[in-house]
Write a protein that binds this DNA or RNA. Structure first.
Length: 857
DNA sequence: CCCTGGTCCCAACTT
DNA sequence: GGGACCAGGG
């Protein structure tokens, strides 16, 4: 009971109103998360509600895990049962994995399998979706120059977010272009079904459809969950809204928390009406407003409020803070983007140093509108030797090598996943080229089956040249072996096929054991937590592997192999890592490291007792925002990713018309309002200091000449008395000529006398990035690798060439095209021999000795 | 059949 | 700044 005394009267009212619909309008920094977690704790501790009958839904995994942690602190140790705190998407995946087969309908043809997805469905990410749309468009003969797959996908997603199926979408389309999109949408949907796959939007849609269509399933959840909380309610879309209503059942114990001023996801289908019309949906609803801000100073709050006050579509509120005054909002006008970034680095480093000296919370964030802005800030931070953390951009699971291996797992998990299959069928190359693939696709199309079936068909009916068939067979064997490992009958398969293809056969005692059925206790009493394992762990029932057994592939013979074991098998058998190591470039080694990291992730997953499909779900559902590290001193991220966070210092960069607000939003007044809310979100992240900045000249694409920018309209919306201009007087900006592209020296502060400017004494070190001099070739390669660039370091000649006819390093040779050169290196033997030759005019060339018509010179 | 280099075209936010 | 695609050489 004691923790309730830590709340203000409004917060307390929100916490103690447990029955019936409740809308909590929580202004920025008003203690929203605190209210949600205390409310859960109150239900459990004071009212004796069973934890597992509480469901809280958030948007990001990060928000969910923070909530879990905080609830744990409040009621920790009280009970093993836990409330279910999950993202919408993860929740839906769990619901679907359990019961999606209830949506199946029997086939019209007796004996045929039922129509509809199986529990083994896979989740398609954006890249997968694009591939699929592209192939559909190709087949329909639609020119992808005029209508890009990207644009089509955006339309499809829009339709899904508004719960329109292809027919409905077609009926409402008014122009030929949209009609075409509807046609693609219909085909796309069929293809997904064929692949036993769902895209992100489907996860929500299908869960809603399931709950609507199957009353047993709905009843199950209604018996199970008595209290439902929804976080970030302003950002829910139509399917999420319906899901919430379905889960609320007849009890209507629904608690929605949100702030209409922070609605920033309308492009994802978020419907601000959900929050504005909550009372209409639930007439008996109670509304509590949290208007005391505990985060920001008065100056910051006033400035932010003044901006958002220009919006028409809002309920309006009066946020107040007891933190009177505070430093003014800073505004810095940089001559260009590079300077803006250097200013930020300079300011942050000074700020952090001073904070640390005063023993204060030393954390800062640079926020921007678009991910591509991060590059300049990263470079500036490195120049100042500051450690920073970037949220977003390229995520781990988007790396090519990671996607390759994940795709292998996907195919093993579900052979009909044609998109994954396409990705790996010739990766690493095994001689399955374009011609072969065209025939396979033809077969698949004609038989109406997946590519996998087409492979079987092609082999059975000998529809391809010998060599292609061989390659296909070896691919099929690889996948079948993986599947056998997964099913736990690898040994049987080995004995049956009598050709051990991989390493040494596991020293296993053969045991015929059916692949574990995932959930034998499907229909249990409503509140057995084990029956519905939403928790973070505790799947550790019957099927779980024993202790970790790194090193040896099989400790439990005959049992299904873990994801990690299958991964190791794949890496070994495909020679993926070996091939990378042979490349012998910094980039290749960093890929190897990534793969090792993937195996580690799989081991962690196994230790949590997860199965392959759970591992794949995780890989599909982790997001960039989840990579946020709260201990990092400096964080760079987009405004969207910053939602829900707070920092003592916030630098909000790129306040320019066209960038922020973004040019794509100019046409629609509603879109501009959303940009303004985004600005509000950004400004209210700041606790003590808020700096806004803008570049007078900005380069749009790497090489183009910089363009002059117009200050963002949001700047003018801030009352001038709250703002203080920082740094360089205007004359300096005027003096700045349009810089020639890529001339680093121009921006170094030593160039111009700016001792009186904002740079103060804290000059950037003269050395290049991270203070290292990159003078040797290895260093340069390392530098490029650290920036994700390709840079091949020629291997020093170490081996003695053995070939009798071969050319030796040092020899002079003549090439018909490149002229005379000197042999630098020789690799491989016989037909495989490659020699690297230094040509005076053309540089290093790696040539196949067999083909290149080299002569002695 | 694979690899490289050149060219074209794109570039908002994210579960 | 970079991904996708294509042509040409090995």
């Amino acid at each position: 009971m004691s923790f309730l005394s830590q709340l203000n009267p409004q917060q307390r009212e929100a916490v103690e109103t447990t029955e019936g619909p409740l809308l909590i309008l929580a202004g920025a920094g008003s203690g929203k998360t605190r209210v949600i977690t205390y409310r859960i704790a109150h239900l459990i501790e004071n009212l004796g509600v069973m934890p597992e009958s509480i469901l809280a839904m958030t948007f990001t995994n990060k928000a969910a895990s923070e909530m879990v942690e905080r609830v744990d602190k409040l009621v920790g140790g009280l009970s093993i049962a836990k409330p279910v705190i999950s993202t919408f998407h993860s929740f839906c995946v769990r619901v679907l994995r359990r019961d999606i087969e209830a949506l199946r309908i029997p086939s019209a043809v007796p004996g045929n399998p039922p129509i509809g997805l199986s529990k083994q469905f896979v989740i398609y990410d954006e890249a997968d979706q694009q591939q699929l749309v592209k192939s559909v468009m190709r087949r329909l003969g639609i020119d992808d120059k005029q209508t890009t797959p990207r644009a089509v996908l955006a339309h499809i997603s829009w339709a899904k977010n508004h719960m329109l199926d292809p027919q409905e979408f077609y009926l409402q389309s008014s122009d030929p272009k949209t009609e075409k999109v509807a046609q693609i949408y219909a085909e796309y949907k069929k293809e997904l079904a064929k692949a036993n796959a769902l895209d992100f939007d489907d996860l929500l849609l299908e869960a809603v459809r399931l709950l609507k269509a199957v009353s047993e399933v709905r009843d199950y959840y209604n018996r199970r969950f008595h209290y439902v909380l929804v976080d970030e309610y302003q950002d829910t879309n139509r399917p999420q809204y319906e899901l919430m209503r379905l889960l609320a059942g007849t009890r209507h114990n629904i608690c929605a928390v949100g702030d209409e001023d922070q609605s920033i996801y309308s492009w994802r289908g978020a419907d601000i009406r959900n929050i504005l019309e909550f009372e209409a949906d639930f007439p008996e609803a109670k509304i509590v407003r949290l208007e005391q801000n505990y985060r920001s100073t008065q100056n910051i709050l006033q400035a932010a409020s003044a901006v958002v006050a220009n919006n028409l579509k809002r309920k309006g509120k009066n946020l107040w803070t007891s933190r009177q005054g505070g430093t003014k909002v800073g505004y810095y006008e940089a001559p260009d983007g590079e300077n803006e970034a250097l200013f930020a680095a300079d300011y942050v480093s000074k700020y952090l140093r001073e904070s640390i000296e005063r023993g204060e919370n030393a954390r800062a964030a640079v926020l921007y509108r678009t991910n591509s802005q991060s590059r300049l800030f990263e470079e500036a931070m490195r120049r100042y030797q500051l450690k920073y953390h970037v949220v977003g951009g390229f995520s781990f699971y988007e790396r090519a090598e990671i996607k390759d291996l994940i795709s292998y797992l996907k195919v093993i998990h579900n052979v009909d996943d044609s998109i994954a299959l396409l990705r790996v069928i010739n990766t690493p190359v095994r001689g399955i080229g374009k011609a072969t693939m065209e025939i396979l696709e033809q077969i698949a199309f004609e038989t109406g089956a997946s590519l996998w079936s087409a492979i079987g068909e092609a082999i059975r009916r000998q529809l391809l040249p010998h060599r292609a068939l061989g390659a296909l067979k070896s691919f099929r064997d690889l996948i079948e072996d993986g599947r056998a490992m997964l099913a736990g009958n690898y040994v049987e398969r080995l004995e049956r096929t009598a050709q051990p293809t991989w390493g040494q056969p596991p020293s296993a005692v053969q045991r015929s054991e059916a692949p574990q059925t995932s959930d034998p206790a499907d229909d249990q009493i409503a509140f057995d937590p084990a029956a519905f394992d939403f928790g973070t762990e505790d799947n550790a029932g019957e099927g779980a592997r024993a202790t970790p057994d790194d090193g040896e592939p099989f400790r439990t013979p005959g049992a299904p192999a873990s994801t990690a074991e299958i991964l190791k098998f794949l890496i070994d058998r495909t020679g993926y890592i070996k091939q990378l190591e042979a490349e012998d470039t910094p980039e290749a080694y960093s890929r190897v490291e990534n793969l090792q990291e993937l195996v580690n992730a799989a081991m962690d997953s196994r230790d949590r007792g997860e199965t392959l499909d759970q591992f794949l779900d995780h890989a599909a559902l982790v997001s960039d925002a989840d990579a946020y590290d709260e201990h990092a001193q400096i964080t760079l991220m987009t405004l969207h990713a910053a939602k829900g966070l707070e920092f003592p210092l916030v630098i909000l960069a790129g306040l320019e018309e066209g960038l922020f607000p973004h040019s794509r939003t100019f046409l629609q007044p509603d879109d501009i309002e959303e940009e303004r809310r985004l600005c509000y979100v950004g400004m209210t992240r700041a606790m003590d200091t808020l700096i806004l900045s803008r570049a007078i000249y900005r380069r749009r694409y790497g090489t183009d000449l910089p363009e002059a920018s117009v200050p963002s309209r949001f700047l003018e919306e801030i009352p001038p008395q709250l703002v203080e201009e920082l740094g360089v007087p205007r004359r300096q900006a005027a003096r700045t000529r349009v810089p020639a592209p890529q001339t680093q020296a121009h921006y170094s502060y030593e160039d111009e006398d700016q001792s009186a400017s904002w740079t103060g004494q804290n000059r950037p070190p003269a050395k290049a990035y991270s203070g290292r001099t990159y003078n040797s070739i290895e260093n340069i390669a390392e530098f490029f690798a650290s920036r994700g660039k390709k840079f091949n370091v020629a291997k020093l000649p170490v081996e003695e060439p053995k070939g009798k006819r071969g050319f030796r390093p040092g020899q002079k040779v003549r090439h018909p095209k490149y002229g005379e050169g000197t042999v630098y290196q020789r690799e491989g033997e016989g037909d495989e021999a490659k020699i690297t030759v230094q040509f005076p005019r053309f540089g290093l060339k790696k040539l196949m000795e067999k083909y290149a018509q080299l002569e002695r010179a």
